[in-house]
Design a protein around this nucleic acid. Sequence first.
DNA 1: AATCTTACTTGATGTAAGTCAAATTTCGAT
DNA 2: ATCGAAATTTGACTTACATCAAGTAAGATT
Lengths: 244, 244
Amino acid sequence: MQKSVSLTPLRVACSGCYLRELCLPRKLTDSDMAQLDNLISLKHAYQRGDFLYRSGTRFQSLYAIRTGFFKTQVLHVDGREQVTGFQMAGEIIGMDAISSDTHTCDAIALEDSEVCEIPFNQLEELSRKLPSLQRHLHRILSREIVRDQGIMLLLGSMRAEERLAAFLLNMSLRFAKRGYSPTSFHLRMTRQEIGSYLGMKLETVSRTLSLLQGMGLINIRNKSVELHNMPRLQALVGPPPQLL
Amino acid sequence: MQKSVSLTPLRVACSGCYLRELCLPRKLTDSDMAQLDNLISLKHAYQRGDFLYRSGTRFQSLYAIRTGFFKTQVLHVDGREQVTGFQMAGEIIGMDAISSDTHTCDAIALEDSEVCEIPFNQLEELSRKLPSLQRHLHRILSREIVRDQGIMLLLGSMRAEERLAAFLLNMSLRFAKRGYSPTSFHLRMTRQEIGSYLGMKLETVSRTLSLLQGMGLINIRNKSVELHNMPRLQALVGPPPQLL
DNA sequence: AATCTTACTTGATGTAAGTCAAATTTCGAT
DNA sequence: ATCGAAATTTGACTTACATCAAGTAAGATT
């Protein structure tokens, strides 16, 4: 099923990579770090299309994305699906499953990816000993809540152009944080997936992207995007058309 | 600002009320409970319209609603607002603020309410000592993430009737859990607030409620609702019209 | 390189929900 | 009880987005 191959037989500490900056607390001693390293020792590789986990399966671990790109989606009874997020390197995934010990969404690799497994019981145990780790875990959980509320705002009250502008700016910001260009990047997901995430049909995504291009704000060719005018994109997200 | 009056000078333990069932872990010893009681000792009263907290203010505590009804909303730069949730007795509110030590939304009482304050630092400290409390806190945070994803699904892929059916059934479930009738209850929020929450205009809320009434599924008179046919309401939420 | 499949774009048309507006009801305050 | 403000309902009209339908381009597979 999920083709998870342990790339290296030896232990590969995630704290050794730049994950440290994004996912791990700062104020830990070397000894603390060692304990954390010990915890986050399982690395897995996934190919495009592989499931990291499936809705309904038992929860055991959170996952820290080392490299690559994932989407999470919830499936409705009738087959409708809603993409709930796109996750990239340095982000933690799987937190929805804590509440019921069962995954409530699917996580699927959008490109070949590497992931560090974080057994949750052990993380809880360690975070009881290390207050700064505990606090960090709480922040990560809370950040996910804030992110979701931002999307609720987007889905509940924005128009197609605004949604796409917000989406592109969000991608831009996240690429920039990882040292990539904020103005030129490659989308890993299809128009369909973008549409599901933003609550619109793929045709509308396509049309609206063409529109933004027509306005000179972006350049989009298949999955490659260039943001030509970030301030105006930002302005588009901000003030509404006639509502103010 | 927030008219928070300490109702009783003496300590009022929240664990003494039915909050225990909804918010607190089970497997605690009496001694553990006593510590928890000690932590959750501050009770405040709010009148309709009062702010429990405001976006931008410093985060210090979570709040357990003892009685009453709140809404949370995020405000956009331009004045647009999105209601992100309605909270009732037994629910915990304020978790979005952990990530940045700052509240990211407003919480406003929809009726006169009582709230127990839970200083978060102390909660963290105690949960380091009590694994079952720690686990419970994590579950509560995760449950909020799952809830938000459900709303994303609703906002992203449901039609007006489906949204309202889902909303009414959710209210019904939550009232039922608290021992109230699942089929007959009183909405505390305006059509406007329902609309904001569900991503539609107040006129559409009104029209759609009339429609559901016309179909014989509900009876609504101002803010009093009766659900006459829960299975059909459920069916409405489930399968889409022609999409399957 | 050729073929097949899957993504993407663009146009024509339909529709659910938004907007504007007026009438009615409810509720709080005097 | 009366008044005024706010909430709700309902109607007429508009619009943003969905749907349906080709046609084109990109990627995968052989």
